[in-house]
Design a protein around this nucleic acid. Structure first.
Lengths: 182, 182
DNA sequence: AGATAGAGCGTACGAACGTACACTCCTGGT
DNA sequence: ACCAGGAGTGTACGTTCGTACGCTCTATCT
């Protein structure tokens, strides 16, 4: 029937504004009013488009997780052999830790939620699973698992370090963890 | 001169209650009132003992960082040779990821704050530095750095995994990262 | 014993919050 | 041209928040 005047970008803008706000001020500081102001939508839109703040956060982080999964895919889908895979992993670590602090901060916020709430843990599982699928094209499952954990740790330490380690160290770590003893 | 009736445990109880509350509900949900109720102190005590919520959080996380540093020390100070050091690292990873979810959650909360605010980053730096000091007694600096990152990643992945990897995998990962090629 | 200074607390205030809901206004059907 | 109904919004309510501050009470000193 009638549709009224509809603006399909409303939801998107709200979700984008939510992630921006979380990146800048933290999950602790999100509120309907701040998000609405940032997205340029009236306060009433918030409860119209989303059932509550919880649903809003969950949906926003789902978008973010999709974004990160895409980054993993972009880096890890291409390589054709083990050496290329190793270099791709090195690239990935440096992209994640050197890119805008935005992704780093949002990742941490998501991990924090995941540590406490299973609903969010599913989001992190998806990208751990996805990255493992890629890695298992070039390495055995155990190695993929170890490498996956190494990526996590290297990325975080590089991001939080005042004097982050250089590419050579990342490359060497990747080489070691992917070298199965004779 | 006069001291009035003083209760030196007040501050401690407040800080402990703060960490408990953060572990249970997250930094987003802390408030003077909830902390006061949990600690069994009057609301007025909050502003009397602490200048504001920021200072309270900073001090609480400082306590927590001290606790974690102590865990690192306890595990990494003892080993006398490389093999014992490797086993100690394996122990550490499993202790951190299997222990109460409390420490895991608080660690994530702290990392999240550290990702955004330098003041908190100093707390994480201290324990990264401390663990490296221990590791460098048995491994060269580059290896210590790689191993430190690996510990981080393994701990997190084990904690967030639905089917966490077993000890053998941890041990193997530690062995690989600490094996310098010939 | 009385005075006093500081430790510690109860309370009140203004601001911000999430959410519900009555309302407007546009659109498509007749 | 008119109607119906749903999309979208403004506002108001009850709650909770951080913080300030005047007050009480106790331990020490004279």
């Amino acid at each position: 029937m009638a549709t009224g005047h509809t603006d399909p970008q409303r939801r998107e803008r709200i979700l984008a504004a939510t992630l921006d706000l979380i990146a800048e001020e933290g999950t602790a500081q999100v509120s309907h009013r701040k998000i609405a102001a940032r997205a340029g939508v009236p306060l009433g839109s918030m409860t119209y488009h989303f059932d509550g703040i919880d649903q809003l956060l969950r949906e926003a982080f789902t978008r973010f997780a999709d974004h990160i999964v895409a980054v993993f895919d972009a880096h890890l889908a291409a390589p054709a052999d083990r050496d290329q895979a190793r270099e791709a992993v090195t690239d990935l670590v440096h992209t994640l830790s050197e890119g805008s602090p935005r992704d780093l901060v949002l990742t941490q916020e998501l991990y924090t939620l995941a540590a406490r709430r299973p609903a969010y843990r599913e989001l992190t599982h998806e990208w751990m699973a996805r990255s493992r699928v890629h890695l298992e094209k070039h390495f055995d499952p155990d190695t993929a698992r170890q490498l996956d954990a190494l990526i996590e740790g290297l990325t975080l330490h590089r991001a939080l370090d005042n004097e982050p380690h250089d590419r050579a160290l990342t490359r060497e770590a990747v080489r070691r963890i992917t070298t199965t003893s004779g």
